[in-house]
Design a protein around this nucleic acid. Structure first.
Lengths: 357, 357
DNA sequence: CTGTTAGCGCGTTCAG
DNA sequence: CTGAACGCGCTAACAG
């Protein structure tokens, strides 16, 4: 309080609101220099007389001092934040990853900034540009890059500028860019799933694909197709229904499917959320699941594991993967870009019972 | 000084690989003063000659200049961030709110920092302390405060310090604290739901309650009890099963329920996530839903609307509410704490069919 | 309208 | 080991 009054002496017009307590105030209160206060409060390598140190800590507590992170950041050149870019934080795929990122970041004393692209590439570029201004230690891009190469090139440049300024980029998606990457084996996972479905007796697949420009979705589609092709079954474009990469996308796709009177014995949705949307639509139309048609998803979203019939899918350790992204980026500073590949694990549940041919 | 001169850019084409481009660099490149560069690039009220302005913008683009937000924040006294505290970002309840917050914040040029308390009150205190250091414009606490008054008092102090330093706190939970608050009508919503269930013919409710120390959960339980009491049905402690406020909590509660051979005709889970967990457990035990027992949730989580049987619940506009929190806090600076009350809307679905008595 | 300069809060040399 | 002084990148008075 005394410190406060002394500070106010300098300004002619005193505002109602107190100015925040600064390190300067703490130093004065403790009767030491600014430098000593700084060295006592933050984790400096320098040693401080234990008595002084105690006095500073006491003063800080008494004044309820809160260090100004921005000031520290500008003095040190980098802030203590991890930036995370997702398509939609309300989508369980991304919120699972985000949970892992936040948890890992907190364990390392960092705060996570999250932004949403709403699946618009130009928006993604804008957001990366904005986040760069925070000078975060890490910039994590979750979700697949899109194929829009107009902005894709600009985005790449932006990311490279960010790294040349001392930041680190981590991609959670597919390999191919010169940054730390956690690659999801979308293709392999879908192929395995196709093989297994064949073994279970399925022969007439239809794919509920995502948007053609979403890389993750197209990889999954390709994996499915190859998996069936391995068994001599060609899944051509007529057996492919595109739609948004969302619950509603699945719902709509199922509507189209119903309209076309297809002969599918199994539907492969490219992710769980779409599968669930599709199931809702099919059920509305009176289609029995899995009696009339089987269905599968991808991701193994935790929140969706209780749908019924329970969904056959490919499990991805989303939350771990978010944590891994943090550690990967933080520990690889200066090194060459690292590539980690994550395998999907088949989970056969009730939505795809053995089919007696 | 020497270093600075060496950094001087001779050619505009060459990218600097070490130090980030500063406003100083842009000014020099454009041949204007630092102040003019600043005024041209940020949204200052001051006017700048159109030619200079253009030169500055061109120079900034050429150098790929990225403003340092930390520096701006320290100069202006406050950062352009909104801080959000949630229990668990992977929980759809919170991720829905978060989506609203992020969207609204972005629309106002702010970046959102998210932290997770993992439902531990001491952790919440730590995190608020940490977030305060960012000097955010807004600090939004979503999810209910717990009843742990030891840390509760400290938290209150921390929040007040934050506001006296010029920040603004918004609570999404229950009224009672001297901050902007978006109050959820948990009690009223549950009471209405109880009334409706009575009308539908139900007479023997069992409540899957959350943890006793979570205010939101206890409010809902109390609302249920009062609703039944209004119709002369007392729901005493023997008809109440406590558990975590999560999917697994519901799963476990259902296990207990099964073990006790209760005579319920309807189960009231205090949120959708618990309801879904409970449904999974019940189904495992061969209980027919809603044939053997009806079930309801609360929240109307979007991702869960496709479970089957579809879940009767009380709809909360979670995403809007997140956006509202942002606008409320940002627009109420200096004013008295505002209180907004949000009503829950009954949604009767297939999990509670009319019951022929 | 433009440029100069003094801070903002803090980390960190560099002398004592 | 301590403290005075400078710098970080930027904004906002204050002159011109």
């Amino acid at each position: 309080m005394v410190a406060k009054l002394q500070r106010n002496r300098l300004s002619t017009v005193v505002k109602d609101r107190d100015a925040p307590v600064t390190l300067q105030d703490v130093a004065r209160e403790a009767g030491v220099s600014l430098a000593t206060a700084s060295r006592s409060l933050n984790g400096s390598t320098r040693k401080v007389n234990e008595e002084y140190r105690a006095r500073v800590l006491a003063a800080a507590a008494r004044l309820n001092y809160s260090p100004n992170l921005s000031a520290q950041a500008v003095a040190k050149g980098r802030s203590r934040v991890v930036a995370l870019v997702v398509a939609d934080i309300a989508d369980p795929y991304f919120s699972s990853i985000a949970a892992g990122v936040v948890r890992a970041a907190e364990s390392r004393g960092l705060i996570v900034s999250i932004v949403m692209t709403e699946r618009r590439p130009e928006r993604e570029l804008e957001l990366v540009t904005a986040l760069r201004q925070q000078r975060p230690q890490l910039l994590i891009l979750a979700g697949s890059r899109s194929r829009n190469d107009a902005v894709g090139q600009r985005l790449l440049e932006e990311l490279q500028s960010f790294e040349s300024d001392g930041g680190r980029v981590v991609l959670i998606s597919q390999a191919g860019l010169p940054f730390d990457t956690i690659q999801l084996q979308n293709h392999a996972g879908c192929r395995k799933l196709a093989h297994r479905l064949f073994e279970l007796g399925y022969r007439r697949p239809v794919i509920f694909a995502g948007p053609p420009e979403v890389v993750t979705a197209t990889e999954r589609v390709a994996g499915f197709q190859e998996g069936w092709a391995d068994n001599g079954i060609e899944v051509d474009a007529t057996r492919l229904i595109h739609g948004d990469f969302t619950r509603d996308g699945g719902y709509v796709a199922a509507g189209e499917y119903l309209g076309q009177a297809m002969d599918a014995d199994v539907i492969l949705a490219v992710n769980d959320v779409m599968a669930v949307g599709a199931m809702a639509r099919l059920r509305e139309a009176g289609v029995a699941l899995p009696g009339d048609v089987a269905i599968t998803g991808f991701d193994d979203i935790h929140t969706l594991r209780d749908v019924s019939p329970s969904l056959t899918t490919v499990h991805l350790p989303l939350e771990n993967l978010g944590g891994e992204a943090v550690h990967l980026g933080l520990d690889s500073h200066g090194k060459e870009p690292q590539l980690t590949s994550v395998e999907g694990k088949l989970v056969i549940r009730q939505s795809t019972p053995t089919r007696s041919a």
